[in-house]
């Protein structure tokens, strides 16, 4: 089953697979209506990659995000994080995974409203068992790194959308996760702020080597991604690598078609 490395489309061919999904399927039944939100998705993501998941509304991006992040269970298929099948984890092991290995970023920011920016960022560290002073210090550093060093003690309601998303990014990085999962992180932001957030994510990917998987509608995201996974009706339609894009803007249609 270990089909790792050596498919030419992947720029990080030396590195190990950090996320692997195999034939993941998720169906929603609404009365008579059956929606195949995911229909046999097999995707490999290498450590350090920046992967964008593109697709029209309702194509299954958020569902894939939830399933990869262990926020929802697939009906069929498996998700491996660091080669561990997350379906096998106990609830407390899953909580540990969410705390240490994955950082989540949402379109709606999802900050804890009753906590200040700094308190939002330190909460996952406290969950991880760090002491309060150390967490405050590290939290301030992270907020500084995302450009919010001056806003440590503001509550979410006192911050703009872009600032809230920066807090959310700092919080997602709290326990130095290997993976950042983002679901339309620029969806609620204006053009310029969205661009800044995308640049910030790219920089974090470069500097910290954190793997980024981002569902998006945002075409600005294409420029910074190592790979773009197009999904349609719950299936992977095609995969493009950065090289494909740069060489010939879209003329090599379907070059990275996934076949397992």
């Amino acid at each position: 089953m270990n089909s790792a490395a050596a498919d030419g489309q992947v720029p990080h061919h030396e590195s190990e697979l950090i996320v692997r999904t195999r034939d993941v399927a998720k169906t929603y039944v609404l009365g008579e209506h059956v929606v195949r939100a995911l229909d046999g998705v097999s995707l490999d993501v290498h450590r350090g990659e920046y992967v964008s998941i593109m697709g029209p509304s309702g194509s299954g991006k958020s569902t894939l995000f939830n399933v990869i992040g262990g926020l929802d269970k697939p009906d069929k298929g498996s998700v491996y994080i660091n080669e561990v099948d997350i379906a096998q984890l106990t609830p407390s092991e899953l909580a540990f995974l969410r705390c240490h290995t994955i950082g989540y970023i949402f379109q709606t920011f999802n900050l804890i409203q009753v906590r200040t920016a700094l308190e939002n960022v330190t909460l996952p560290m406290l969950f991880a068992g760090m002491n309060a002073e150390e967490a405050d210090e590290k939290g301030a550093q992270l907020l500084d790194a995302v450009g919010l060093g001056e806003r440590l003690h503001h509550r979410p309601t006192e911050l703009s959308g872009g600032q809230q998303q920066r807090v959310a990014i700092a919080r997602a990085l709290a326990n130095a996760p290997a993976i950042l999962l983002a679901d339309e992180p620029t969806g609620n932001l204006d053009l310029r702020t969205g661009k800044e957030i995308i640049e910030l994510l790219r920089r974090l990917n470069d500097e910290r080597g954190v793997t980024i998987i981002s569902a998006t509608h945002d075409l600005k995201m294409l420029d910074v991604s190592d790979r773009i996974v197009y999904i349609r009706d719950g299936q992977i339609a095609k995969i493009e690598t950065r090289g494909d894009l740069e060489l010939s803007l879209g003329s090599v249609e379907g070059i990275g078609e996934e076949k397992w």
């Binding site: 992040g69 926020l71 609830p91 407390s92 909580a95 540990f96 969410r98 705390c99 240490h100 989540y104 999802n110 900050l111 804890i112 909460l123 996952p124 969950f127 991880a128 919080r171 709290a174 326990n175």
Partner: peptide, 10 residues
Amino acid sequence: GTLKCLGASD
């Protein structure tokens, strides 16, 4: 849901 994403146990 958010607390759980941050690693809170049930």
